[in-house]
């Protein structure tokens, strides 16, 4: 009796995927991740490289929201809030660093800093 009562609920989510499956959203997420990866590897402008990492964050966000919808709980959406927080913090720090590097070398090229050592 409890088992049947468990799954009866108020209609909050209409049939969401509308003929789509989880795979559809995950494919978009994977495509954005791959595009961001290509951009990060092939572009030489520091700012564009950071933009590409933001694109990869977006891919991860779509996957999280799609899984949150799939499992009907809010943990995925909550996690996207933290992803946004980290993205904002990262953007602030990265752009401050980029401004500093630009003042030193008058260039945004990543190859200007290829002699950095660990």
């Amino acid at each position: 009796m409890i088992d049947t009562a468990l799954i009866v609920g108020q209609s909050g989510f209409p049939d969401p995927m509308g003929g789509l499956t989880l795979s559809h959203y995950l494919f978009v997420s994977a495509a954005m991740m791959a595009i961001g990866l290509i951009g990060f590897m092939s572009r030489r402008n520091l700012i564009i490289m950071f933009l590409c990492t933001e694109l990869m964050f977006q891919g991860a966000g779509i996957a999280l929201i799609a899984f949150s919808r799939y499992h009907l709980n809010y943990d995925g959406q909550t996690f996207v809030i933290f992803v946004l927080t980290i993205a904002a913090a990262e953007a602030a720090m990265a752009l401050a660093l980029v401004v500093l590097l630009f003042r030193r070398r008058e260039s945004l090229s990543s190859e200007e800093w290829s002699e950095l050592k660990g």
Partner: peptide, 17 residues
């Protein structure tokens, strides 16, 4: 298991969650 979540077959389970 890329079928839909069983909770979708019932009319919404948001309150239970």
């Amino acid at each position: 298991d890329l079928e839909r979540s069983p909770y979708l077959e019932t009319p919404g389970a948001t309150l239970a969650s």
